[in-house]
């Protein structure tokens, strides 16, 4: 049962944190939460689809199908996460320039709130499909109505409960945050999240031999061990790796650099506006 708790918790945690982050965002922007229900249903169905066709996917592309599909899924999520980051950055900066509240701006600006909802839906459904499929595969190894199956089922329920609880705590922590702290914090998390997901893309390419992995650049396991609870939490949210190699570092930079450039560009724009007003 403990094995089932840990396995399911690891898979659920990442999806739960992403869902809570995006739900908090849409709450702050006063957008309806309906999108999350549709996204969760799509993710659930997607996970069953991926689990059902696992063998065929794994055998595709000369045995590289699973990794290549993971690359596509991660890449789509990274692009959507960055897009959300760009949208929210421009909304945030616009708020500062016009000194309006964040909540109403996106509904009245030219920025289409439906684009944001669509991006959030894609992020949630793809993440859930990817993580959830492993849970279905795990359960396929049990004989239904056996003692071990029921034990694993209870373990999975506990794991899902813990994961959802952590997601719930994260959600409420975020929605009670003031806007002036929430938005910058959200953008930092989004940047780190996109970096973490890009590490997974690098891992897939190294696993199928398309890229060579070399020695680690550093070893931070003395600070936070990957196998510890904190390490698992950081892995779920930011893709924490105690011993990253140079390939992963390049991918991380490639994913986070667009957001950093975006921040700098907007910061510079704000400074120019501020200087213009003083003059």
């Amino acid at each position: 049962m403990v094995d089932a708790v840990l396995l399911v918790l690891r898979e659920v945690l990442e999806a739960a944190l992403i869902v809570s982050l995006l739900l908090a965002l849409t709450y702050k922007l006063q957008l309806h939460y309906r999108w999350s229900i549709i996204a969760l249903v799509c993710g659930f169905l997607g996970s069953i689809f991926l689990a059902y066709y696992t063998s065929a996917i794994a055998d595709a592309a000369d045995g590289r199908g699973q990794e290549l599909l993971n690359v596509v899924l991660y890449l789509v999520v990274v692009v959507c996460v960055l897009w959300v980051g760009f949208l929210i950055t421009s909304v945030f900066v616009s708020c500062i320039k016009n000194k309006k509240n964040n909540e109403r701006l996106i509904a009245t600006e030219k920025n289409n709130p439906y684009l944001l909802i669509m991006l959030c839906s894609v992020i949630v459904s793809f993440s859930l499909a990817r993580e959830g499929s492993e849970i279905w595969i795990y359960f396929s190894s049990f004989t239904i109505q056996s003692q071990s199956f029921y034990s694993a089922l209870i373990g999975a329920a506990i794991g899902i409960g813990i994961g959802m609880s952590l997601g719930g705590i994260t959600y409420y922590l975020l929605i009670f945050m003031k806007e002036k702290y929430f938005t910058p914090g959200f953008l930092v998390v989004v940047t780190l999240l996109s970096g973490g997901l890009s590490l997974q893309i690098a891992k897939q390419f190294m696993q199928i031999g398309l890229l060579d992995s070399d020695g680690p650049i550093w070893d931070s396991s003395f600070l936070v061990n990957e196998k510890s609870w904190v390490g698992e939490l950081l892995y779920a949210l930011f893709g924490y790796d105690a011993q990253p190699n140079s390939v992963q570092a390049y991918f991380y930079l490639a994913a986070t650099l667009p957001m950093l450039i975006n921040f700098l560009w907007h910061w510079r724009s704000l400074r120019e506006t501020s200087n213009a007003k003083k003059n």
């Binding site: 696992t54 794994a58 190894s141 190294m206 696993q207 011993q243 190699n245």
Partner: peptide, 13 residues
């Protein structure tokens, strides 16, 4: 964790 590798292998595969 040390090798940074993770792959599901179905039964008989």
């Amino acid at each position: 964790y040390e090798l940074n590798r993770e792959k599901v292998i179905m039964g008989g595969a």
